[in-house]
Design a protein around this nucleic acid. Sequence first.
DNA 1: ATGAAAGCGCTAACAG
DNA 2: CTGTTAGCGCTTTCAT
Lengths: 335, 335
Amino acid sequence: MPAVRLQDVANLAGVSLKTVSNVVRNKPHVSPATRKRVQKAVDELGYVPNMTARRLATGRTGMLELAFPDIQAPYYAELAAHMFDEAKKYDYRLLIEQTRNLPENERAVLADREQGLVDGVIFEPVSLETSQIALLKGDLPLVMLGEVEPPMTVDHVAIDNIAAAKTATEHLLKRGHKRVAFLASEEVNSSTVKRRLTGYEAALREAGMDPDPQLYIAMEKPTTDGAGDAVVAALNHGVEFDGLFCYNDMFAIGAMNAIQSVGLQVPGDIGVVGWNDITMTKYSMPSLTTIAPDVDALCSTALAMMMERIKGYDGIGRHRTVDYQLRERDSTKVI
Amino acid sequence: MPAVRLQDVANLAGVSLKTVSNVVRNKPHVSPATRKRVQKAVDELGYVPNMTARRLATGRTGMLELAFPDIQAPYYAELAAHMFDEAKKYDYRLLIEQTRNLPENERAVLADREQGLVDGVIFEPVSLETSQIALLKGDLPLVMLGEVEPPMTVDHVAIDNIAAAKTATEHLLKRGHKRVAFLASEEVNSSTVKRRLTGYEAALREAGMDPDPQLYIAMEKPTTDGAGDAVVAALNHGVEFDGLFCYNDMFAIGAMNAIQSVGLQVPGDIGVVGWNDITMTKYSMPSLTTIAPDVDALCSTALAMMMERIKGYDGIGRHRTVDYQLRERDSTKVI
DNA sequence: ATGAAAGCGCTAACAG
DNA sequence: CTGTTAGCGCTTTCAT
């Protein structure tokens, strides 16, 4: 059954192509009588506009690319869900692209190898450097998310990682934890790690403590199990700490499980704070205190900037910071 | 900067449009010398093919829609990740559409309101009925996932829910749990619930027990918290059980937390089994024994059937069953 | 208020 | 091996 075209409808209704097009798109300049007749023909034939053709004619695809490391990571799945909702408000659909933290995939995102597929891309790189991004970025509207420093010309939205890391560390200190460690993997997101480390150290210094290099626990593998392994190794090496600020929630959950598996208590012996506020933090044992970025604001800000770019704004890159909150749960109850 | 077109490249290279097109698509029938010259022009101009135009000309979009309830649900996020990988093998991209369990959204998926946007749709409905699907399904290739009975003409892939539910229940029985309850929400996926209930009851009967209606714990809200609430309510009502087979992993995790919050132990007092084997099951406390569908096989089978449909296969709907495994973890250690 | 004609950028016969 | 000629289905001036 070959698809029914505008022409077919026009023939049936006995009007021109243009008129049918006007009716379909709810344009003015069509008499009620004609409109009704055309609508009847549309329904009868079951006409559905061909998006591809419309796109070619208008140059607008109605699609945005959302590129980030991994849809399977809870934080990104949740980010995607919010972004879907937000995009729908502007009548846009999202095409998801996973980079898997691979530089070549991140480069491919910018290479814009499929012109005309999307109207713009919202991109959270983790390993590309600013200079490379500037180099590769074509003229497709681009909004960056996350901690990689954007080039001068590109819009960017993120939360203040230094401040949030400071908040997390201060919280641990306030709850009575004296020696707070920082758990992260350097393999990924090194600029992010750096920022959070800065905030962490600032909190310690303000509390009159000197950051102890021993308390920087580096993971070998950037996975949940890797987090557990690193914590156990630190404990076995006699590193003493009673507070742990983790790079993300999954690492925190891995760490809590490991801590409890060696007979220590959370938060009794070690208080733990995560980052992202993924759904699972409510159901881990114990539930996890975490930094909750305002994902709604993140998405709406990113999309708003994207829409301006699409409409033609071509100025210098804007940098927006969105809020975060410390969500206190059982992993840091007062001791 | 107006996009560079095939024509521009042809002009620069001094050849015809067609030749450039051949070079770009790596078609034969181009002399090495010409190919090189054209390639140089392509690079110089930074030519990128316009996908929309290509699509209109070929009628192939290179895109598949993947429609399911909710990207935020871990199982679907993981399914999507696998599906992305599988689709890439066929050079297809995926457009995700969330139905949020809403019938109107499920209907919209089938209504094919955007002809020419995708070449086919892979769809896991939960609330639509077979007859409605048959009615709404246009002529876009369609492959169904999950437990809703497909119409005669549509392909379908799923795991044997009755057998898997029986396996899960038998496992609990084998581990020494005498009174096994079944936890689910009837609001959603009622056909799925029915099948699992059938398997659950079959296992009980084979073990010489009569299913006790009291042991069917119905949730009011189909959420993780709803699962916990339902279990606590049952316990408060004096329902006695020492085994719990849950509709899905998140419900199981909610149930385990609730059980432990009232002072009972898992698996000591109550053994728990989930469904889906989401990543989190390894990190819950205790880790969760669960039914692990072979998601890889699910995706590859679905995509293979989709490719046949796209290539023109127009026969009767095929029904494929993929494997599952019982993944034993700490929530059902021998008691 | 409606119609005719000219593309959007690409692919696909069909020639040469 | 390469070039020419039509479309793909829709939107959009520009007339009427």
